[in-house]
Simulated scan of single mutants.
Amino acid sequence: MSKFTHIGCACGKTRLEVQGEPILVSECLCNSCRQAAARLAKLPRAPNILTSHEATASAEYRKDRIRFVSGREHLAEFRLVADAGSRRVVATCCNTPVLLEMKGAHWLSLYLHLWPESSRPAIDIRTMVSDLPDASHLPDNVPNLKTHTVSFYMKLLWAWIGMGFRNPKIEVARTVDA
């Protein structure tokens, strides 16, 4: 039987249940993730989700292993530009960034600050390091990858095969501007 973990926004009104272990746990240093995190941090009461070295940390989970337990009515999407291929979803009850969804993806990247610090999944890799002007300050505790690797995409492919090539939709009715 798979383990279930309960996580949620800063105020506790938006709660999720995730099943099993993540596909991968990463820190992304791409310009898009860093820019979105900086803009979302300016919302009232919003937590800053950037790590000390300006990355966004997330656990990638199959969509079929994530369930919103409460607070779905608080969810709103944020896009850097109107036609962006990715969206971030925020719990507007406390403006906590919850997840990143790539267009057409069968997985979601759940931001690690949703977990209590004591049970937060450990980072496997740091990716998109090539977007930094100078990556020399990054710790070497995990691989610092210039881009996404074949191994990264293979893990996602195996997860999709495990889902029977399904891609559940995550409905979010509202938008938020940051």
Rank of each mutant, 00 (worst) to 15 (best):
R126L: 00
P121W: 06
I23P: 03
T149M: 13
S52M: 09
A91P: 00
S58N: 14
T147D: 15
M154R: 15
V172R: 00
V81W: 15
C28L: 07
L99P: 02
C93P: 05
K13E: 04
Y153T: 10
R65H: 05
I66V: 13
E171Q: 11
D177H: 15
C11L: 01
D83T: 15
Q35W: 04
F78T: 00
R15E: 06
S118Q: 04
H113C: 09
T92M: 11
L29S: 15
D131R: 15
E77I: 01
L43W: 13
V25H: 12
S86M: 11
H148S: 14
Q35F: 06
P22I: 02
R120A: 04
A36S: 11
L29E: 14
K3Y: 06
D64C: 09
Q35H: 08
R65I: 00
A41T: 09
A91T: 01
V89Y: 01
V69K: 06
H137A: 14
A76R: 06
M102L: 15
A76I: 07
V25F: 13
R62S: 05
T127K: 12
R87N: 03
R126I: 01
P133N: 10
L156K: 09
S109M: 15
V69L: 12
R88P: 01
V172I: 00
H137T: 10
K13I: 00
E77L: 07
E77W: 02
I161Q: 08
S119T: 12
F165S: 03
